[in-house]
């Protein structure tokens, strides 16, 4: 057990699964000898060989097709899409193909694919690297969409994802790769794919969030505590399908909700959570559902990130508004 970063926890999870099951294949652009553009696959090809860890030509759609075909022949593919802004190139393989194969073939086949991809703002990337596009895949039946908020969850969720016989889109926030350290067990462990986590218990308001915004929400909760507001922070972890039970239990307990996401207001996961609460938790509410999200523009030019991205201050303001409603 040692304090480590999310990127190291991800590498450790991949290492564990490559050792455990020779059918696990890690592939993508620059994931082999180079060890990935973020070093997520560092050392894995040297240890496990080119048969299990390999580079591909530069074509996301081809990578998606490769994963689908390998799954049809009994492998457990863990492809990487270098940045999730490039998902549009592989949208058919994801949303038109491997998410549907089990359904399409009447349950006679499985697609144990875990597609890893970095996303997320705050690190001044060039265009179409940081966009939060989880909403697109969350709206696709047949996929599980997982977004860890720190090193411990990242390792356990990734191991669960790779072992799952269902296709999983595993999104890794770039700002979380090295900014947060947590105690992470050396051995393999799993974090369930169907459970949200209450990251901070509270009684006055539920902040329901995911990804890097979990960290901002936890900081906001500390500030709010100083003003006498006791916020509960719920980390969705698996953003689709939603863990309705945990969400509704928190809403029932606090009676007030603020949904926080980095994605634009018209995108992301919050609209689904809001709809769930409106449908199944409305009688618990003492105030409207508050939302913190990005403006409805395309992702900003790098220099404008700090004024565009939602942050702790936005969360504190919105929570106060909802608590004082």
């Amino acid at each position: 057990m040692a304090k480590t970063t999310m990127i190291k926890a991800i590498t450790a999870a991949l290492d564990e699964e490559l050792s455990r099951d020779e059918k696990v294949l890690v592939f993508g652009e620059d994931v082999g000898q180079n060890g990935g553009v973020f070093r997520a696959t560092d050392g894995l090809q040297a240890k496990h060989g080119e048969d299990q860890v390999f580079d591909t030509p530069l074509a996301e759609s081809g990578i998606g097709g490769l994963a689908t075909g390998l799954a049809f022949t009994g492998f457990r593919p863990v492809p990487e899409i270098q940045f999730f802004g490039f998902v549009f190139e592989v949208m058919d393989s994801i949303a038109g193909q491997f998410s549907r194969e089990r359904f399409r073939m009447g349950g006679t086949r499985k697609m144990p694919i875990t597609l890893r991809s970095p996303f997320g703002g705050g690190v001044h990337t060039p265009e179409l690297h940081s966009d939060s596009l989880e909403g697109l895949v969350a709206q696709t039946p047949g996929l599980k969409v997982v977004i860890p908020s720190g090193p411990y969850d990242a390792k356990g969720l990734l191991i669960s994802a790779i072992r799952s016989d269902d296709p999983v889109i595993f999104l890794e926030h770039m700002k979380l790769y090295r900014s947060v350290k947590e105690e992470v067990p050396d051995e393999a462990y799993v974090v369930p794919l169907d459970k949200a986590a209450v990251k901070r218990e509270g009684t006055d308001v539920s902040i329901i969030t995911y990804g890097y915004m979990v960290q901002e929400s936890l900081k906001a909760a500390e500030d709010l505590q100083k003003e006498g507001i006791n916020a509960e922070v719920v980390d969705l972890r698996t953003v689709s399908p939603l863990d309705e039970e945990t969400i509704l239990a928190s809403v029932k307990k606090t009676g007030r909700v603020v949904l926080v996401q980095e994605a634009q207001a018209q995108a992301g996961i919050s609209p689904m959570v809001a709809s769930l609460i409106a449908e199944k938790g409305i009688l618990s509410l003492d105030a409207p559902i508050g939302r913190v999200s990005a403006p409805d523009t395309p992702y900003p030019f790098a220099e404008a990130e700090s004024t565009w991205l939602p942050n702790k201050k936005d969360i504190v303001e919105k929570v106060k508004e909802i608590v004082e409603f």
Binding site: L66, G69, T73
Partner: peptide, 11 residues
């Protein structure tokens, strides 16, 4: 076509 490449690699 892209899936065939994957199946072929699997075989």
């Amino acid at each position: 076509y892209v899936q065939a490449a994957g199946v072929a690699l699997g075989l």
